[in-house]
Design a binder for these strands. Structure first.
Lengths: 142, 142
DNA sequence: CTAGGTGCAAAAGGTTTGCGGTTAA
DNA sequence: TTAACCGCAAACCTTTTGCACCTAG
């Protein structure tokens, strides 16, 4: 990662290294706060601001992506392959969904004149664990 | 809209009526604050909290949708037909994109066990106005 | 040596909440 | 009549910023 940081003019610091390691360790799309709590185990003096700074640096040098779900806290994802996300309505988990390469560009009726640069697809529903649970429980929801 | 509100146990109030009218009037996906400013013209004493309450009621009784762009303020959209959004990177505008009915369900390699309930597709790029402007200007961006 | 990074605390931006008074049904 | 709603202000949560000190290059 040193080269990646350097390529964009960022310095290599122990905090950035550690935050990246934390991100790679448990690929569950943690929020900044979750990263902060995990990072503190190895680097007890790290601050929230530094975690944000480190995550920002990782995003800028393309070692991580930001993942947005509704208005909840930003989540971070070190999977840089082209992929989408599945959001579980029940447990709140975020799962990577592989993207069938280049399959989408022509799919939408984008009116003339719009210059599309980036697609983002989110799929909401129940993850395998929660979908078997809820079909067993047959719970009544709002 | 009275029936729609009543159907979900909401009362019909002048504030809710007015906020809905404001939303229909200018379909540019305004933020709560923009709705607030526009609503004040007709209802000078309305408060931000009430605007949030009204928008929330409209969303809950399916007269409006919430539209999320990155981490900016929530936007509101009274177009209840199935559609996606195009976000202009240059002017920040949000545009409705018609959805080719049911065209997407099979497109993604969703692993077995995931129960998809809702798809959300955002397309980022330049709107017609900005894309002609930028091709004329040939500006160097970050 | 020094530009950039760190940690802290305080502020910002968007949204939600608690509360006393008001109103639709 | 009364539960729901309103307006206000204060709280809340996530993210950003200002600043003094520190450190990688």
């Amino acid at each position: 990662m040193n080269e990646r940081l350097a390529a964009r003019g960022f310095r290599f610091t122990s905090q950035r290294e550690h935050v990246y390691k934390v991100l790679l360790q448990e690929r569950d799309h943690p929020t900044a706060e979750q990263v902060f709590l995990r990072a503190k185990k190895g680097l007890p003096d790290i601050s929230m601001a530094t975690v944000y700074n480190c995550l920002d640096a990782l995003v800028k040098c393309r070692l991580a992506r930001e993942v947005n779900v509704d208005r909840t806290a930003m989540r971070y994802c070190p999977n840089m392959q082209d992929h989408f996300h599945f959001y579980c309505d029940t447990c709140g988990g975020v799962f990577d969904i592989e993207c069938l390469a280049g399959a989408h560009a022509g799919e939408f009726a984008i009116p003339k004149g719009f210059a599309a640069r980036r697609y983002e697809i989110s799929i909401h529903g129940d993850c395998p664990k929660c979908s078997t649970k809820s079909s067993r429980a047959k719970r009544n929801d709002s």
